[in-house]
């Protein structure tokens, strides 16, 4: 994952769009509401979760509510 290295704004959350099934658990659970359900569709036809781009506190709640092993990665610091 080369993308990870280029992230400057930390903490942050990385979503692998095509692994997301759009269940919405992370969007609902995020305490600071920085995740939204994308208007776009991924390759499977789901509306994946999307990070607004700022405001992540790195709490990891989205990671633990997400049923997909690899869809969400949280970088704390």
């Amino acid at each position: 994952m080369d993308v990870v290295e280029t992230i400057v704004d930390i903490p942050t959350v990385i979503i692998r769009v095509d692994e997301c099934k759009g269940c919405g658990y992370c969007v609902e659970a995020c305490p600071v509401k920085v995740l939204v359900q994308s208007k776009k569709l991924n390759i499977k036809g789901y509306h994946p979760a999307e990070y607004k781009g700022s405001g992540c506190t790195g709490c990891g709640v989205c990671f633990y509510t997400c049923p997909e092993p690899g869809a969400i990665t949280v970088i704390k610091k």
Partner: peptide, 10 residues
């Protein structure tokens, strides 16, 4: 790359 479970499965 993804599991076979339905969206939102526990």
């Amino acid at each position: 790359t993804v599991t076979h479970y339905c969206p939102g499965c526990g």
